[in-house]
């Protein structure tokens, strides 16, 4: 009898967990299906390479794609080196005391700050104080700040997976700390760092709130010519097309097309992360 109850509990537990997984997969599948079925029709070479025309009721989304690309590039230039440096310092050099634990906790908390707050902060710091104006630079820097906690955390986790024996082995051979990190720790942490970083960047690429006040434009006839230009961006364009346009129902397909391109972009970045990780892992001779 007892055995039977145990068996029933086992089956129930297993099926409950499986149900949770299925619900999640279903939700994702529905979202993908919805966006794909409504957005795929409008995707064409022209849609990807031409600017919007006729009051944004026709034409393509090329400036938005380009804008998102530039802003994400600025984000990467800022967040990747700074985040990696910070993570290396925290994980390899800083002593494990109250102060570093507090710093770590603060960084974790920063990744929970709503993105609109970063947007406001970006206006104050970059647009006004640094006189970058509403521009690609301001928006990229704001997104960079927002991505930093993610980059730092991901990099630190990646560094933690490198066995202590690699560090000790190098130090015991008379390597300096930096030599051991550069030649015997970083090469094995890089795949993990890159994956985490690219995930962070792909999240940044899809953000609307932080670029809202810092440089994204409703509509621009020309593509940006410097990092101090305003720009159009995919997520913001999507927001405009679905809520701010004068004829929302007419431009609905464009909105869905934009969403599809954005998702494809994010997917592509994640794919790149997977490929990089796979290739580095193979080269790293079976580590991790």
């Amino acid at each position: 009898m007892r055995l039977k109850i145990k068996r029933i509990k086992e089956v129930m537990g297993f099926n409950t967990l499986r149900l949770c997984m299925l619900v999640v997969v279903m939700i994702l599948a529905v979202i993908f299906y919805d966006i794909f079925s409504k957005g795929a029709g409008i995707i064409s070479w022209e849609f990807l390479t031409k600017p919007p025309v006729d009051g944004m009721t026709k034409g393509g989304i090329f400036p938005a794609i380009l804008g998102t690309f530039f802003v994400t590039a600025i984000t990467a230039i800022l967040a990747v080196p700074l985040g990696m440096g910070c993570a290396i310092y925290l994980n390899e050099y800083a002593r494990d005391n109250g102060l570093t634990r507090f710093i770590r906790l603060s960084i974790r908390n920063l990744s929970g700050v709503p993105s609109i707050v970063y947007g406001l902060f970006g206006v104050t710091l970059f647009v006004d104080m640094c006189h970058f104006g509403t521009s690609i630079l301001s928006a990229g820097a704001t997104l960079g700040l927002m991505t930093l906690p993610l980059t730092i955390t991901a990099s630190e986790e990646a560094l933690k997976t490198v066995p202590r024996s690699y560090r000790e082995g190098a130090l015991a051979l008379g390597a300096t700390k930096w030599q051991s990190i550069r030649t015997n720790v970083l090469p094995f942490a890089i795949p993990g760092i890159l994956t985490g970083t690219i995930l962070g960047l792909s999240r940044a690429a899809g953000e609307t709130a932080p670029i809202l006040f810092t440089g994204a434009a409703f509509f621009l006839p020309d593509i940006p010519n410097s990092i101090f230009s305003q720009f159009m961006a995919l997520p913001y364009h999507l927001y405009i097309m679905s809520t701010q346009h004068h004829n929302i129902s007419l431009v609905r397909p464009i909105a869905y097309g934009t969403a599809l391109v954005l998702i494809a972009l994010v997917f592509l970045m994640n794919l790149v992360a997977v490929i990089i990780r796979y290739r580095l892992r193979k080269r790293g001779m079976a580590h991790g």
């Binding site: 066995p163 024996s165 000790e168 190098a170 051979l173 008379g174 051991s180 094995f188 001779m285 079976a286």
Partner: peptide
């Protein structure tokens, strides 16, 4: 540490080639 070398409890070769493992100490 250059004058006083150490061999650890668990063999800890670096995930490099045999040659590179030995060259490493010289290079650093």
């Amino acid at each position: 540490r250059r004058k006083v070398g150490m061999v650890f409890q668990k063999p800890n070769p670096f995930p490099k080639s045999i040659y590179e493992n030995i060259a490493y100490g010289l290079e650093v």
